[in-house]
Simulated assay, not measured.
Amino acid sequence: MLAVSGPAVFAGYVAEHTAHGPRLETAGKIREGWLDTGDLARIDADGFVHLAGRAKDLIIRGGHNIEPAGIEDVLLAHPEVTAAAAVGRPDPHAGEVPVAYVTLTPGARVDPAELLTWATERVGERAAAPREVLVIDAIPLTAVGKPYKLGLRLDATRRAVLAELAAQGADCDPDQIVCRTHDGSVHVVVPAPADQAVRHRVTAALDRYVLDWQYAAQPVT
């Protein structure tokens, strides 16, 4: 994790003015003059800092930290891949497993199964091999042109929940599964099965995930 200190690091935001002066708010990011940047990095023998991605984008598989860049670089090396983004998908056993989203060159003939094999054979460690490669029209971007991975995490979560519901006999429309975000975390609302036996199975299945979820209070429209 990259932390920086020096005259360029400000003391914090002014949250309010009090009789004793301004009260500063640092959101926990500044401690004893050091700013937690949220970036992953390494320093080489010459003292240069090399950025390696955002800490919040780490995929944590069974307690093992996986940097998405290692998966993305492998996929980008394929001649028909134009963009790639790897995110964590909820998993009942490992907590998260990596999945990848890619865009392809016009007229590309490679299919997701081939890309999955390509990535599996080339990633630096077995744990980083993606469980699935999904081809999409475009990688969502933020206002400054960076990949919007939270949106992809929402999609991956919805797919995982939808597959689990189907496995438990609770088929539903994908649009009935509502995924929301708050402070970077994902919250899921699913329709409650009318059949109590199915509902019991769904509850037991979803509780195995490290997932913030609940049943809808009323039918999702």
Rank of each mutant, 00 (worst) to 15 (best):
A119C: 12
A77H: 10
V102I: 06
A197I: 00
Q176V: 10
E132C: 07
A85H: 05
I59G: 00
T120A: 11
I139T: 03
A194C: 10
T37Y: 12
V198L: 02
A167L: 02
G151D: 00
A84E: 08
P68W: 00
E72Y: 06
L76P: 01
A11K: 08
P112C: 09
E164N: 05
V81F: 00
Q168Y: 00
P140M: 10
E132Q: 12
W213N: 02
L165F: 06
T105W: 03
A166Y: 14
I30P: 09
V188P: 00
D111I: 14
A3T: 13
G28N: 15
G88M: 04
L134C: 15
A8H: 07
R180H: 14
H187W: 06
R201V: 04
A52F: 15
L152V: 01
V190C: 08
D44T: 09
E67Y: 13
R199N: 05
G12L: 10
C179H: 12
V9H: 05
P191Y: 10
G107H: 10
H64G: 07
H50W: 11
K146I: 12
A138P: 09
G169Y: 00
E164S: 08
Q218K: 07
E121L: 14
L24F: 09
D173K: 10
L162N: 09
D44S: 06
V123L: 08
A216M: 06
G63P: 14
Y209T: 05
V220R: 06
V102Q: 05
R54P: 06
I177C: 01
N65T: 13
V188S: 01
W34F: 11
Q168I: 02
K146D: 12
V210S: 04
A128H: 05
A217I: 12
L58A: 07
V81R: 02
L150C: 03
D195K: 03
K56T: 14
F10Y: 14
E164H: 02
T103F: 02
L152Q: 04
A217N: 10
I139Q: 04
A170W: 10
W34D: 08
H187E: 14
L40P: 04
L211D: 01
G124Q: 07
E16C: 12
D155W: 07
V202H: 01
A69T: 11
R109G: 15
R158M: 11
L162A: 11
R42P: 09
I60R: 08
G63T: 01
V133Q: 08
G70V: 05
A45E: 15
V102M: 01
D36T: 06
P147E: 04
T203P: 03
E16G: 07
E32K: 14
H93G: 09
